[in-house]
């Protein structure tokens, strides 16, 4: 059982003639809680889709066990005749042919998944009428119902207010601790994840770095990843990654220009 939950090496993905990921390699041990961090367009979604096998890619991807996936926000119309419990049931056997025969085992699995995300209260409501945070919970339950070993989440915190985002993070942490499930979730801001993640996978310029937060998020390491000078500033327990006119060489025109990279 010592093998990694996810092992990626030499992964390259091109889209529309452009290389989005170049030689990405990393390992996640079982039970890791890893944040996939990078700015918009850094290739977070591309990496997740490549791991899921949805994109043609070069390199090696080894996932030990079943993968669960929570895509970025799905637009559910309010008149969609699909209750939260129906949606979770589709996670269990939505790919099977034929109508579902109501069975005790099936109902129990769905119920357990809904309970795990604390969504029993609105299980019978139409999914399109739920709030963003409630929908996110149901989508996680949809992925959980087949008891995955590795859970991939694409920007689960986007579109959520601070309170709902904190609840989702706590929920994911608890799930990973209870079941030993490995979690990889993408976010453009690492700060809400700092208290819970034990690893970080940082994407920039098509390359990735993976390791404990303290090791990766430092001025030297991230500067090397970006290929130009980066300042990592820590204020009140928050981390700011700032691109400045530090080395002057590449950015002669950027005089006083400072851009925060979230």
């Amino acid at each position: 059982m010592s093998e990694a939950a996810l092992e990626v090496s030499g992964l390259s993905v091109s889209q529309g003639g452009q290389e989005v990921l170049r030689g990405v390699g990393f390992q996640l041990p079982r039970g890791a809680f890893c944040g996939l961090i990078g700015s918009n367009g850094a290739g977070k979604t591309t990496l997740l889709r490549a791991i899921l096998g949805l994109l043609p890619s070069q390199g090696e991807i080894k996932a030990g066990g079943r993968i669960g996936y929570v895509p970025q926000k799905i637009l559910f119309e309010p008149d969609l005749p699909v209750r939260a419990q129906d949606f979770v049931a589709l996670g269990l056997d939505g790919h099977r042919f034929g109508l579902a025969f109501p069975s005790r085992a099936r109902a129990e699995k769905v119920e357990a998944a809904l309970r795990a995300v604390e969504a029993e209260g609105f299980a019978g409501q139409r999914i399109g009428r739920l709030s963003g945070g409630q929908q996110q919970r149901v989508m996680i339950a949809h992925a959980l119902v087949r008891s995955p070993d590795l859970l991939l989440l694409d920007e689960p915190l986007a579109n959520l207010d601070i309170k709902a985002a904190a609840e989702i993070i706590a929920l994911l942490k608890r799930l990973s601790q209870e079941s030993g499930m490995t979690v990889l979730l993408s976010a453009h801001d690492m700060n809400p994840l700092l208290p819970v993640m034990d690893r970080i996978l940082y994407l920039a310029g098509g390359s990735a770095l993976c390791g404990p937060v303290q090791e990766v998020v430092s001025t030297e390491v991230l500067s090397a990843l970006y290929g130009y000078h980066i300042d990592v500033i820590r204020v009140h327990g928050r981390v700011l990654v700032v691109a400045g006119s530090g080395d002057g060489h590449d950015h002669r025109h950027d005089h006083e220009h400072v851009t925060a990279i979230p």
Binding site: P71, G94, F97, L99
Partner: peptide
């Protein structure tokens, strides 16, 4: 239609989810 109802419903909700599930 009854035979393909479940994958069809899943695909109608979100194509990516369906693709991940092997539809």
């Amino acid at each position: 239609l009854a035979l393909i109802a479940r994958p069809l419903l899943l695909a109608s909700l979100d194509e990516e989810l369906a693709r991940v599930a092997g539809v």
